[in-house]
């Protein structure tokens, strides 16, 4: 799959330098880290509602359920 150029150079510059900094750091929570549900002590905060209410449209599931 072809990847294409990004918009603002400043965003790209930020991304490059930020990723460099990230790669230098230690790993405290590996990408497969998962706290056992038995040890979860908080559920976070309520997120704002999504822009639309969900409607019945089973055909839309087909893209990934097939």
């Amino acid at each position: 799959m072809a990847t294409v150029t990004v918009s603002t150079s400043s965003e790209k510059e930020f991304a490059s330098s930020y990723l460099t900094l990230l790669s230098l750091g230690e790993t405290k929570f590996p990408s497969d880290y998962k706290k056992d549900l038995k040890d979860v002590r908080g559920l976070g905060v309520k997120l704002p509602n999504l822009p639309i209410a969900k409607k019945s449209d089973s055909s839309k599931h087909s893209a990934i359920s097939n």
Partner: peptide, 10 residues
């Protein structure tokens, strides 16, 4: 975010 809230990074 919902998964991060319960520390399920995976």
């Amino acid at each position: 975010l919902n998964y991060l809230f319960i520390q399920n990074v995976k």
